[in-house]
Design a protein around this nucleic acid. Structure first.
Lengths: 199, 199
DNA sequence: CATGCGTTCATGTGATCACAAATCGGCAAG
DNA sequence: CTTGCCGATTTGTGATCACATGAACGCATG
């Protein structure tokens, strides 16, 4: 989810079993679950890799984020008290620091933390779970993208999100969240050949 | 997904293995996948049952359907030619027959077939996959609901969906789909104690 | 030097087993 | 009649093994 693994990274049952000091059985179960959630791709022969998403699939997943995240934000809005906004603000500061360090994995993780902290307030576990499967599928691709980007500050829409929360303005919040999502994933189109995975 | 199993139905690895004439290993993998998709609930001790959804969770899942399905319908609209609309219409006739027979499982299956046939035209496999995990979670509950209902015809919004498709009217289509989803799931609130599962 | 082929090795699959934990039953006591 | 307890049994978990399949590598040939 946070982009630790690049797209196309191959994994083997025995390799994972040895790495985590367990037998193949629990690894198989965990891998099956990740495959079911779309976090891993199963080739026709049963080989497992992290997904290399096509542009069309990225756009679908981005559209799902753009549908679900504003809804979760809107549901969180009436419960968003000052302490939460304050916490979001400090997470946003950490996000800026990760951007300055050009720490792609840290940036993705902190960005997801920002969004998840807000959405947790929506008290909608099923919706959040679905959204996280979408994040999971985008993880490796996001890493490939942010690894190339030379961003050095937090997303500008985050400030709009915080302002809308403080103002209690739901339409503005929905717009800000949607803009943040679609803006962040806009740079994904010319990304296929720019990254070369190490298999 | 089609409501073959009632909510709270318990399943055992050995029972499923014996039923499908395989060993426990493939059953465990399949069950793990279904748990990951929310089709089955894993108790703290590892027991598996079909989910007994709370009202809040049902409303979340209904909200997800109401978000995703209009989008899929809108994406399918430009590709919906006459042959597709004709096929949808005949599926809708079969739906009416299932309603007359008070065949709950057949009704759910045919209703899902109606929606899936339309959404397949959207050419958005990731979005459809996510939607199907939502359907999967609702399956047992839908059976419990439609089993009590005394409906004897196809949903009235289906005719609006077909009309919007013929007219190429996207806003009307989105509204009709959303109304169909929210209307179908409105009867779920007083459902908890009306059905008694056989464990 | 490129290309096709054959062998070897790695990998996933299904099955079986030992074990621990939890469930369900009956039984007895109040 | 209800309630608590104890034992038998069911059940999930992790591990290991045999096997078939597909991939990878090297070698020989053009």
């Amino acid at each position: 989810m946070i982009g630790l693994l690049p797209p196309g990274q191959a994994l083997t049952l025995r390799g994972l079993a040895a790495r985590f000091r367990v037998s193949m059985t629990p690894v198989r179960e965990a891998v099956r679950r990740l495959v079911a959630e779309g976090a891993l791709t199963l080739s026709s022969s049963g080989r497992m890799t992290t997904p290399e998403l096509s542009v069309e699939r990225i756009e679908e997943l981005a559209a799902l984020r753009a549908l679900i995240e504003p809804e979760l934000a809107a549901r969180a809005l009436p419960r968003a008290h000052f302490a939460l906004i304050d916490r979001l603000s400090s997470i946003n500061d950490a996000l800026g620091e990760a951007a300055e360090r050009h720490d792609a994995v840290g940036y993705i993780r902190t960005n997801l933390e920002f969004h998840r902290t807000l959405y947790l307030r929506a008290q909608s576990p099923a919706m959040l779970a679905i959204l996280e499967t979408v994040w999971l599928q985008l993880g490796p691709t996001m890493r490939a993208v942010y690894g190339r980007m030379r961003r050095n500050e937090a997303p500008r829409h985050h400030r709009m999100i915080l302002a809308s929360l403080r103002a209690g303005d739901e339409p503005a919040l929905r717009l800000a969240v949607r803009a943040d999502v679609t803006h962040g994933l806009r740079h994904l189109s010319p990304s296929e050949d720019a990254y070369r995975p190490t298999r």
